[in-house]
Amino acid sequence: MNHSEHPVQRVRVTSPRVRRPRPPRRTGIAEIDRQSRVGEIYMASLLRAQLRLAVVVLAALAATVGMLPLVFLGFPGLNDILILGMPLPWVVLAFGIYPVLVALGWVFVRAAERNEQAFADMVERS
Protein backbone atom coordinates (compact mmCIF):
# COMPACT_ATOMS: atom_id res chain seq x y z
CA MET A 1 0.00 0.00 0.00
CA ASN A 2 1.34 3.27 -0.96
CA HIS A 3 0.35 5.85 1.56
CA SER A 4 1.62 8.77 -0.39
CA GLU A 5 -0.53 8.00 -3.48
CA HIS A 6 -3.84 7.52 -1.63
CA PRO A 7 -4.05 9.82 1.33
CA VAL A 8 -6.86 8.79 3.68
CA GLN A 9 -9.05 11.65 4.82
CA ARG A 10 -8.44 12.25 8.50
CA VAL A 11 -11.48 12.05 10.72
CA ARG A 12 -11.68 13.70 14.12
CA VAL A 13 -12.89 11.21 16.69
CA THR A 14 -14.96 12.61 19.55
CA SER A 15 -17.03 11.16 22.35
CA PRO A 16 -20.51 10.02 21.39
CA ARG A 17 -23.48 12.41 21.97
CA VAL A 18 -25.15 11.07 25.06
CA ARG A 19 -27.29 14.12 25.98
CA ARG A 20 -30.25 15.59 24.15
CA PRO A 21 -29.58 18.97 22.54
CA ARG A 22 -30.19 21.79 24.99
CA PRO A 23 -33.45 23.57 24.28
CA PRO A 24 -32.91 27.12 23.05
CA ARG A 25 -32.95 29.50 25.99
CA ARG A 26 -36.07 31.65 25.97
CA THR A 27 -36.43 35.14 27.37
CA GLY A 28 -38.99 35.83 30.06
CA ILE A 29 -41.00 37.64 27.42
CA ALA A 30 -41.29 34.47 25.34
CA GLU A 31 -42.23 32.46 28.42
CA ILE A 32 -44.99 34.88 29.31
CA ASP A 33 -46.22 34.94 25.71
CA ARG A 34 -46.37 31.11 25.68
CA GLN A 35 -48.24 31.27 29.00
CA SER A 36 -45.90 28.57 30.26
CA ARG A 37 -45.36 27.74 33.93
CA VAL A 38 -42.25 29.90 33.94
CA GLY A 39 -44.22 32.76 32.40
CA GLU A 40 -46.87 32.38 35.08
CA ILE A 41 -44.15 32.64 37.73
CA TYR A 42 -42.80 35.83 36.16
CA MET A 43 -46.29 37.36 36.14
CA ALA A 44 -47.07 36.20 39.66
CA SER A 45 -43.91 37.84 40.95
CA LEU A 46 -44.86 41.17 39.36
CA LEU A 47 -48.41 41.00 40.66
CA ARG A 48 -47.23 40.04 44.13
CA ALA A 49 -44.73 42.92 44.26
CA GLN A 50 -47.30 45.48 43.10
CA LEU A 51 -50.05 44.15 45.36
CA ARG A 52 -47.75 44.11 48.36
CA LEU A 53 -46.82 47.72 47.64
CA ALA A 54 -50.49 48.70 47.32
CA VAL A 55 -51.35 46.99 50.62
CA VAL A 56 -48.45 48.72 52.40
CA VAL A 57 -49.52 52.16 51.15
CA LEU A 58 -53.18 51.52 52.03
CA ALA A 59 -52.16 50.27 55.48
CA ALA A 60 -50.18 53.48 55.97
CA LEU A 61 -53.27 55.44 54.97
CA ALA A 62 -55.42 53.49 57.42
CA ALA A 63 -52.88 53.86 60.22
CA THR A 64 -52.62 57.64 59.81
CA VAL A 65 -55.77 59.20 58.37
CA GLY A 66 -57.99 56.22 59.14
CA MET A 67 -57.19 56.29 62.85
CA LEU A 68 -58.08 59.96 63.30
CA PRO A 69 -61.76 59.47 64.30
CA LEU A 70 -60.68 57.05 67.04
CA VAL A 71 -57.90 59.37 68.16
CA PHE A 72 -60.28 62.32 68.37
CA LEU A 73 -62.77 60.20 70.28
CA GLY A 74 -60.18 58.78 72.66
CA PHE A 75 -58.29 61.98 73.39
CA PRO A 76 -60.80 64.80 73.89
CA GLY A 77 -57.98 66.79 75.45
CA LEU A 78 -56.71 67.54 71.93
CA ASN A 79 -59.65 69.89 71.53
CA ASP A 80 -58.16 72.24 74.12
CA ILE A 81 -55.09 72.87 71.99
CA LEU A 82 -55.95 75.90 69.88
CA ILE A 83 -54.25 76.99 66.67
CA LEU A 84 -55.38 80.43 65.43
CA GLY A 85 -58.44 80.02 67.62
CA MET A 86 -59.42 76.67 66.13
CA PRO A 87 -59.14 73.33 67.97
CA LEU A 88 -56.26 71.12 66.84
CA PRO A 89 -58.49 68.31 65.40
CA TRP A 90 -60.29 70.86 63.23
CA VAL A 91 -57.00 72.20 61.90
CA VAL A 92 -55.68 68.69 61.21
CA LEU A 93 -58.83 67.70 59.31
CA ALA A 94 -59.06 70.95 57.36
CA PHE A 95 -55.41 71.43 56.41
CA GLY A 96 -53.10 68.74 57.76
CA ILE A 97 -54.14 65.60 55.92
CA TYR A 98 -53.47 66.68 52.33
CA PRO A 99 -49.65 66.75 52.55
CA VAL A 100 -49.77 63.21 53.99
CA LEU A 101 -51.89 62.02 51.05
CA VAL A 102 -49.57 63.58 48.47
CA ALA A 103 -46.51 62.12 50.22
CA LEU A 104 -48.02 58.63 50.24
CA GLY A 105 -48.90 58.99 46.55
CA TRP A 106 -45.37 60.10 45.69
CA VAL A 107 -43.81 57.16 47.53
CA PHE A 108 -46.19 54.79 45.75
CA VAL A 109 -45.50 56.12 42.24
CA ARG A 110 -41.74 55.81 42.71
CA ALA A 111 -41.93 52.31 44.16
CA ALA A 112 -44.39 51.10 41.53
CA GLU A 113 -42.15 52.33 38.71
CA ARG A 114 -39.18 50.61 40.37
CA ASN A 115 -41.11 47.34 40.53
CA GLU A 116 -41.94 47.61 36.85
CA GLN A 117 -38.34 48.37 35.93
CA ALA A 118 -37.16 45.32 37.86
CA PHE A 119 -39.75 43.20 36.06
CA ALA A 120 -38.70 44.57 32.66
CA ASP A 121 -35.02 43.89 33.39
CA MET A 122 -35.83 40.35 34.48
CA VAL A 123 -37.96 39.29 31.53
CA GLU A 124 -35.81 40.96 28.88
CA ARG A 125 -32.69 39.08 30.04
CA SER A 126 -32.16 35.97 27.94
Binding site: L53, A54, V57, L58, L61, V65, P87, P89, W90, L93, A94, I97, Y98, L101, L104, G105, F108, V109, A112
Partner: peptide
Protein backbone atom coordinates in the same frame (compact mmCIF):
# COMPACT_ATOMS: atom_id res chain seq x y z
CA UNK B 1 -69.14 71.43 61.99
CA UNK B 2 -65.86 69.57 61.93
CA UNK B 3 -67.32 66.14 61.13
CA UNK B 4 -68.14 67.39 57.64
CA UNK B 5 -64.46 68.03 56.92
CA UNK B 6 -64.30 64.31 56.18
CA UNK B 7 -66.08 64.97 52.87
CA UNK B 8 -63.20 66.88 51.21
CA UNK B 9 -60.62 64.65 52.90
CA UNK B 10 -62.38 61.57 51.52
CA UNK B 11 -62.78 63.05 48.05
CA UNK B 12 -59.01 63.58 47.93
CA UNK B 13 -58.00 60.32 49.61
CA UNK B 14 -60.22 58.55 47.09
CA UNK B 15 -57.63 59.49 44.46
CA UNK B 16 -54.86 57.95 46.53
CA UNK B 17 -56.79 54.67 46.71
CA UNK B 18 -57.50 54.94 42.99
CA UNK B 19 -53.81 55.61 42.28
CA UNK B 20 -52.69 52.64 44.35
CA UNK B 21 -55.20 50.06 43.17
CA UNK B 22 -56.47 50.90 39.70
CA UNK B 23 -54.86 53.89 37.91
CA UNK B 24 -52.20 52.20 35.76
Amino acid sequence: GAEMLWYPVGWTAGYLVLLVLVAA
